[in-house]
């Protein structure tokens, strides 16, 4: 592939890399796994880039490839869930502007989200990224109504995890 294409791709990826980091944040539990998934998403984005024709925004296109890689294509190298490392990772990454109670609540919320299944995580991810139900339904391949119904169920599930 031409250098020009390579350059254009890396420049755009560099600008929007947070999208990939955020996917990794939801789907992995520690730094190693985060890096590994980041690597695979980058490769998948690069492989698909020649077919990217700019009909959608680069960032929108990244959501789709990123989630597809996390949900479907990615093979986890380590199967064990290292929650200790996950806690440390979350602690490092979290925002610093909240008071203790809110901070604690957020930590629990992130942990609860990590307990959801892959599909539920994808819905939560798109919701957190402020995507509307049409975009969620198009990314996942389900109807808008079902995306809405499922989202409500996920909210209920999160509440149950938080208040057993």
């Amino acid at each position: 592939m031409s250098e020009e294409l390579e350059h254009s791709f890396i420049e755009q990826l560099e600008k929007h890399q947070n999208i990939v980091h955020k996917v990794c944040r939801l789907y992995t539990n520690n730094q190693d796994a985060h890096n590994d998934l980041f690597q695979e998403i980058t490769i998948q984005l690069w492989k698909a880039f020649p077919k990217f024709r700019g009909e959608a925004k680069f960032s929108t296109w990244m959501y789709r490839v990123g989630l597809n890689t996390a949900i479907t294509l990615y093979r986890k190298k380590k199967r064990t869930i290292n929650t200790e490392a996950f806690d440390a990772f979350e602690f490092k990454i979290k925002s610093e502007e909240y008071d203790d109670t809110e901070e604690q609540q957020l930590k629990l919320l992130y942990q609860a989200v990590h307990q959801l299944n892959d599909i539920e995580k994808a819905l939560v991810f798109l919701y957190l990224e402020d995507k509307n139900y049409r975009e969620i339904s198009e990314t996942m391949g389900i109807s808008e109504v079902n995306a809405r119904v499922k989202m409500n169920r996920v909210k209920t599930k999160l509440r149950t995890i938080l208040n057993p």
Binding site: I10, E14, K22, K94, S95, L106
Partner: peptide
């Protein structure tokens, strides 16, 4: 809503991610 609280934090967290170079 719990998710809205999370969303607020999520959207503020942009500067906390590592920045990979070109």
């Amino acid at each position: 809503d719990e998710l809205d609280l999370l969303k607020k934090d999520w959207q503020k967290s942009d500067s906390n991610y590592p920045k990979l170079s070109y």
